[in-house]
Simulated assay, not measured.
Amino acid sequence: MIYTVECSFTDQAAENEWNAFYSDEKLPALISVKGFLTSQRFRLSGGIPSTPTYLAIHTIANEGVLESADYHQNGGGNFAKWQPMITDWHRNIYGGVELFPDVANDQRLLISNESSDALNALGFQALHLWAIGLDRTPIERWVAIPGNLPDPAHHLKADGVCVYVPMRSQLRSDST
């Protein structure tokens, strides 16, 4: 299962500290939780203007992981300091991919919430995800991971495709 967390951040003066916290503390804490298999974080580079700026994608063993004491103690919900600055926060669980692929620093993550058509027209093989838990919006997503894509990729905006840049390498648990 794929667990996604999306948000925007409103305080530019604190944004570097927020990113350091999320990437250097939050993701390693999450990957230590039993049932978290992979974690990677992305920043929006181009696409639909109303899209949240940040996206974290985690592979989890099952939905119960998010209800576990381990999750609540070591990873979930420790945003109190940052909560007033977080907007457009969405969480979803998707089926369709067993283990989310690593997106290397020279690659981009392309996401369409409409269909695979735009990604296929660009020559990319799209992975299909469908919502099975939490917010369940968008209900479906199509993702592709091309390499060496220009950044920002303005020509993709008209196609309803969002372009994300990896903020760090994918973390993997010892059990993957």
Rank of each mutant, 00 (worst) to 15 (best):
H155D: 12
N148Y: 12
P150K: 03
P150Y: 07
I145S: 06
I139G: 10
G147M: 03
A144T: 13
G160I: 00
G160E: 05
I132W: 08
A158C: 06
T137G: 09
V163L: 06
L129Y: 01
L129W: 02
N148S: 09
G147T: 06
L129K: 04
N148G: 07
V161R: 01
P152S: 02
V143Q: 02
W142D: 00
T137M: 12
E140V: 14
D151M: 14
T137W: 14
P150A: 07
L149Y: 00
V143T: 10
K157M: 07
G133V: 03
P138A: 07
I145F: 01
K157S: 11
N148F: 12
G133L: 04
E140H: 15
L156V: 00
R136H: 08
V163E: 11
I139Q: 12
A144K: 03
D159R: 14
P150C: 07
K157W: 12
A144W: 05
D151A: 15
P150T: 01
I145H: 01
D151Y: 13
A131S: 05
I145N: 02
P150V: 02
P150D: 04
A144Y: 04
P146M: 03
E140Q: 15
R136V: 00
G147E: 10
E140I: 15
V163D: 00
I139H: 08
V163P: 05
G133D: 07
A131F: 02
